[in-house]
Write a protein that binds this DNA or RNA. Structure first.
Lengths: 250, 250
DNA sequence: ACGGCGGGCTGATCTGGATCAGCATCGCGC
DNA sequence: GCGCGATGCTGATCCAGATCAGCCCGCCGT
């Protein structure tokens, strides 16, 4: 946990920070955002927050902690679709679906605010600007999934890893949880493997290789960029798809 | 081109058909939909409709023909993210972005209606029900991308191919362009390769294998399901993620 | 009527990453 | 303070799918 001012306002929330990268929100907008944050809940590691096939249409906004969304295949293997960090929506995509098509569970202990379909739609009616901002966030999420698709389809294991960790760094910096030099990261090599479509064994080797090349170090729950520019080059990382160049300075 | 009734109404449009799988649209809603269809344009094969990096925020609704959206990597390879068939949106994801993060181009000659960000947002304001329907369609698009991600991450080439062609069949049937027995399909083996993260050579072998196993035949621009149930089994195809069980019978 | 070329198709070879098998360390519960 | 499950790490072997090299056919343009 980082230091908080004595009277934390919703301005401090990761969600507000993130949305501000897209539109400058008025105090009215921010009030509506903070209303969305009312029903705060806690979840322990591995407790399912959203389950494949469930029919109640609720989503969450992550306030603290990390989560991941994934699909299980008959056969037992799973594909992690994405990780969620503070400020991210969980299950936004299936609020409109009759049944959820994926699972979401915490990787670390998590605080999240529950948002129902009704809440969301009525908040949209109240402030169209917020609606636009949320749709922007949803588009950004999809853009990230697409980039993961490119990872799996056309990038080598090493490029994939570099690209993924760079993206994660950019996302975390946007909500104030990382610097250009690196960030702390609770992901195990198994989780990375399931997300990147690799085996855990190979993830290990790739990380070693990147470390020995002096490009990045991932150890003890911390990612350190040893040579940021070389990584960007290697991964052909072009942050345009994140659309982070907002009204606030980056 | 298929036969049309003497006075075609917007009800016949693939988009309306598709959205009807989710909500029953009123005649008012349908009028708004048909307004969206006003600015009809034609595009030849390979003419870029949307370009990576472009800044004008327009999308299209496909009225006839097939298109594909893809990303190019420095190095020349490309990853096709998805194909679009009549009734699908093109570039919806980046209407809200400052710059488009992908390309879209026709695979066959195409008729499409141009929709600007303004058009769309004002249509939403007019009929919230339509807004919901469009968001549903966007969610379905994302669900398909996620399923493609699972394809690339965790399914073998054969499973991948089967899964993909089954999904395409389901999508086409929804807009009245295919039957359970098969559908006509203008995709070359090169396009399939770029979409499924395979080499064209391997696509060829996989198709041969599926044919020799008596599961499906893809020849002369037509996909024929020779053993639908076996395919569903092989690919572990669960259409839940398409959320097609709508108010109209399927 | 003929060259060129986009597609389909094939065999031979190579390789990135999976799989299998196992060891070392650490934190935690009892 | 001991056992045990997670996690990190490593070597040896295997294989799905890439790559390379080419042939055949039908179509289109001149």
């Amino acid at each position: 946990m980082t230091m908080q001012p004595a009277t934390p306002t919703v301005l401090d929330s990761p969600l507000a920070r993130k949305l501000s990268a897209f539109v400058r929100l008025s105090t009215d907008d921010l009030r509506v955002v903070s209303d969305l944050f009312r029903r705060r809940r806690n979840f322990g590691i591995g407790v399912e927050m959203i389950h494949q096939g469930q029919t109640d249409q609720t989503a969450f906004v992550l306030a603290s902690g990390w989560a991941c969304s994934y699909k299980i295949l008959p056969g037992g293997t799973r594909q992690i679709v994405d990780f969620q960090v503070p400020g991210d929506f969980l299950g936004l995509r299936s609020v409109l679906f009759r049944t959820s098509d994926h699972n979401v569970e915490p990787i670390t202990p998590v605080q999240a605010s529950e948002v129902t379909q009704r809440d969301l739609l009525s908040a949209f009616a109240e402030t169209p600007r917020l609606a636009t901002a949320v749709l922007w966030a949803a588009s950004r999420d999809e853009a990230m999934v697409v980039e993961r698709l490119v990872d799996l389809g056309r990038r080598s294991a090493t490029e994939r890893m570099a690209h993924f960790l760079l993206e994660l760094g950019a996302r975390l910096r946007l909500v104030g949880m990382g610097e250009r030099s690196g960030y702390s990261c609770p992901l195990s090599q198994y989780l990375l493997a399931d997300a990147l479509g690799l085996s855990a064994v190979h993830v290990n080797r790739v990380l070693r290789e990147l470390r020995e090349e002096g490009m990045l170090t991932f150890q003890k729950g911390r990612v350190t960029f040893d040579d940021y520019d070389a990584l960007v080059e290697l991964a052909a990382f072009d942050r345009a798809y994140l659309d982070h160049e907002g009204p606030l300075l980056t």
